[in-house]
Amino acid sequence: MRLERRTERSAALTLLAPVGAVVAALILSGGLIALAGANVGQAYLAILDGAFGSRLAWTETLTRTAPLILTGLAAAIAFRAKVWNIGGEGQFYLGAITAAALGSQNWLHLPAPLLIVALMAAGAVAGMVLLLVPVALRLRFGVDEVVTTLLLNFVVLLFVSMMIEGPLKDPLAFGWPQSVPIVSEAELPKLAERSRLHVGLLVALLLAILLQIMQSKTVFGLESRSVGLNPEASRFAGIPLGATLLKVACLSGGLAGLAGVIEVLGVKGYVTTDLSPGYGYAGIIVAMLANLQPLGVAAAAVFAATMFVGSDSMSRALGVPSFIADVTVAFSLLTMLVALLLSSYRIRR
């Protein structure tokens, strides 16, 4: 018996890998839940119930899904071209603070839909610029963008903190550091009454579909994939490396910035330094679970959101620390890597 590399992975295996990875992650986390003295099956049922058991629960889960789709797409688009954008968290916050700053007044007296589109564009551009810097540094000086994007996350968070304690501070917030709320015209329409679910989810899903088409049907999709697979061969084939990577950076940074915008316009209405419970980092896991496929990102985002929302109520009921959600999601990233490896080999006798 020996292992042999598959030349092509079948559709069934491609679908099976993330399922197997999630199951393995749930089994590993199950051990930790047992360690906390809770019944594992009961805990997972409580998570499912907490995420989908009531109208409030499922609208909340879908509300959390929206930014995760966008940060997941940001990571998927970048990783496919081997642009290691780990700065989703920073781009998210820069998009958010840009939307909050510009949306605090309707400066140009735009009608609501136009104002929303303008704020989304502004936040996306902010995210783009933030990622263009590390990618340009890589192209010009050969500086690894992993470290620079990671370090910029901390810089941006401090910048946001500076803004909401300084020029953008809400004087009516009883001294809490938060930004001036956005005007009511800038608020995203709700998808369901009496819930926080907003049209940002539809925007995210639409972008996932568009990016799936872009990746599989357009020249740019092919180019961005080929510079990731083999930059030398791509250059030889006449694909401009620098221009392609910069375009990928614009898309990726823009998507993460947009995630920040919809959280401000759709959910909170203002910015605090705990606006994101790690959406930027979770987006990386979501992208990997989806095997970098945009439509898969939407499904993986639902899984992550289920864990995050469900574990909060499970934690209250069973006393298992809610950090179990982060642990499970992190496990699923590592098991997914192994699952992908296993699915690319076959056993020959």
Binding site: I324, F331, L334
Partner: peptide, 20 residues
């Protein structure tokens, strides 16, 4: 496996497991 992605996974796992 990819050293970038595995390393990030280790960071996310080790920190969340630590908090847990």
């Amino acid at each position: 496996l990819s050293q970038h992605v595995t390393g990030l996974g280790i960071t996310l796992l080790a920190s969340s497991l630590g908090y847990y």
